[in-house]
Structures are given as C-alpha cells and as structure tokens.
Design a protein around this nucleic acid. Sequence first.
DNA 1: TGCGGAACTTACCATTGGCAAGATAACATC
DNA 2: GATGTTATCTTGCCAATGGTAAGTTCCGCA
Lengths: 180, 180
Amino acid sequence: MTDRPYHHGNVRRAALTAAIEAIEQGGPAALSLRDVARRAGVSHAAFTPHFGSKAGLLTALAAEGFDLLADAVTAVGDDLVEAGVAYVRFAVGHPAHFEVMFQPSLHNADDAQLLAAQDRAGQALTTALSASAGETTELAAWSIVHGFANLWLSGALPTGLDDDPGSAVRPVLRLLSFTQ
Amino acid sequence: MTDRPYHHGNVRRAALTAAIEAIEQGGPAALSLRDVARRAGVSHAAFTPHFGSKAGLLTALAAEGFDLLADAVTAVGDDLVEAGVAYVRFAVGHPAHFEVMFQPSLHNADDAQLLAAQDRAGQALTTALSASAGETTELAAWSIVHGFANLWLSGALPTGLDDDPGSAVRPVLRLLSFTQ
DNA sequence: TGCGGAACTTACCATTGGCAAGATAACATC
DNA sequence: GATGTTATCTTGCCAATGGTAAGTTCCGCA
C-alpha cells in the first residue's frame, strides 16, 4: 500500500523525537504511545523491541537528557555561575527532557543507561560547582538553578524574565559569590 | 444491596483524599479516576458534578495546595529563612499537592479558585520574603526552596539530608542572609 | 405531601498500553 | 548467490481508562 518500507530503520530516534514533540505540547502525563507512533509513522507496537514499554521510552528519554545536561555543564568549565546558567539554559531549551528526568515515577529506576547518565551529570555538576564553593554553597547553587528552571517552566515566575531565563538567573547566582 | 447510602454526601473531600493517596503511591501521571473512585467507594462518574473531569479534580487539588501553602508561609511571619523552611516542609509533607501544583499541563488554567489560591500563596511569599530581602534575593530564596524541595522529592539529593529536609535547607538559606 | 433538581449509578463509547501471532527483511553462513 | 536465522515491524486482540448520556435516588423547598 504505502511506499514506506516495512523496516523503519531508526525507530528509536524517531520515537524519542516524536515523544519530545508530544511532551512539549501536552506534558508527560498526557503522552500517548499511539500518538508518538502516529507522529513517527510506525505502529504503536513498533516500540516494544526498542523500549519494552512506555516507561522504557521515558526512561531512555531521561537518560538522553542527563547525558545532554552533563555535556552542557562540562562545556562551560569550572565556573559556578556559568555552570548554573548552562543548567538553566538546558532546562529551558529541552523542557521535555527536563520534565521527564526529574519524575522518577515515570522511569524504570534500575535502568543501567539511566543510572550511568545520572552519574555522569552528577559528576559534571559536582566538578563545576565544588571548584568554586563549599558543600553548602554547592547545594545552594544546584537548588537555585533547579528551582529557577522549574518555576520558569511552570510559568510561575513574573513575566519579563521570559526573554532569556539563562541570563536572568545570573545575578541570582552571583549572590552566592559573596558567601564563600 | 449495599448499606452504603446512594448519596455519599462528601464526594468532593473523599475524592481529594483518595487522589492524594493514589498520587503519593504512583505519581500524578499514573493517576486513574476509576482507581480514585474505588478508593472513595463511589462510581467513577460520581466526580462529574463536582469536578467535571480529571483535569478538574487535579485543578481542585492544586488550588487546595496553594491555599495550604499560603497558610503555612503566613503562619511563620516575616522571616526569610523560616518562611523558606515552611515552604520545604509543606512540599515534603504534602508531596501530592506539591507535584500537582506546579504542573500546569494537569490543570484547567483558567479556573477561578486556582487563580485565587495561587494569588494568595504568591502574596504570602512576597510578604514574607520581601521583608528581609531585595528583589534578587527574594527570587534566590524562592528558587532555593523550590529547587531543594523538588530535588528532595525526586530523590536526587544525597542521602543523609533525608531525615529532616526542613532543617537541612536552613543553612542553605542562611547563605542569603549575608548578601543583603 | 408532592415536586423540582442535584447527586449518584449504570451502560456505553472511543482510546489507551500491552501482548501474541504473523509478516517482512536484514544478516550471517555456506 | 542461495538458504536459514534472527531482529524488526504490523495486525489483531484484550482489559482498563476518561467521558457522556440516560436512568435512579433522594434532598430541599413550597
């Protein structure tokens, strides 16, 4: 019937991309496997060999997110403020990943890839933050950027910061520079 | 058949309580109206007159959460640190409310009760924080407690803080005391 | 006492996630 | 190049879900 080949060849990437699109439109709770399948142009059962289940798909998405976050934080070096800015920019630039990453109820918690990616991201953050701060300041910085990103994504922050949340968080993080 | 009266009399409260229980066990995404109905001892269609839809139920839960948060923050007075501690204690003590409150994709965004409760909570926070801080510090404090609460709820924070996250956030917030 | 309307149930519908069985094609081995 | 093996993908099915419509119960008020 269709000219589409029986074997898609890259269902995994197509599924992740389609899921990102769907989550950006309706949030993770409203995500439907069949909707993702329609967007990707495959049947809803095509995901089984690749992800096992819906939780498996979201777990893979979370793992990809932690990897991207690790890359982003590592790229800016050991500056606490700029690492924080990178954290917020990642969250705002990849809202679907970010939302899924920190909702453990959506994951297969024991997934090896996810655990490895979480560890990579944790190492990257610890390295960047601990270079210029003590333990308490490190926790403060992480909480600030994580809270700021969450509040921004949920629309709770006053408008006006909306233009560039990455820059908007910089003066907030600078408060911590004086505390060392 | 059953001795249960045809009219429950308090479906609204029973539904909210049952939903809280279910969300604490499986997260908001896995919440099922029919499961909530079974827990509350009514049919799944009994919610329609009270909430309209699943989104309506979650909207009511979010509104209740913002009201409780406003109460909690107001109760501790105008101290930035103690208001922050109250914020975290609320989040940890009412995880189901907290998770639903900040996921707008679960809500009817134009609900009057929700908007009013959000405003109450916003006023309470602004009052408590602005008393002892400038605008940037205020944003830092909100981000810290919100981020800390989210990270704690998602299990991302190192173990050891688990005993009493309310107290654990206090030294973190004190960092901001020196910045004014 | 009777009656209007809200609360609640039952019955039904389209949609969902997951599984089993079958179809297709990529790949290895000869 | 032919053949067998295996992973990929589809179709068909199932129980469960959210929502709606129609019917039942019963509260409140005249």
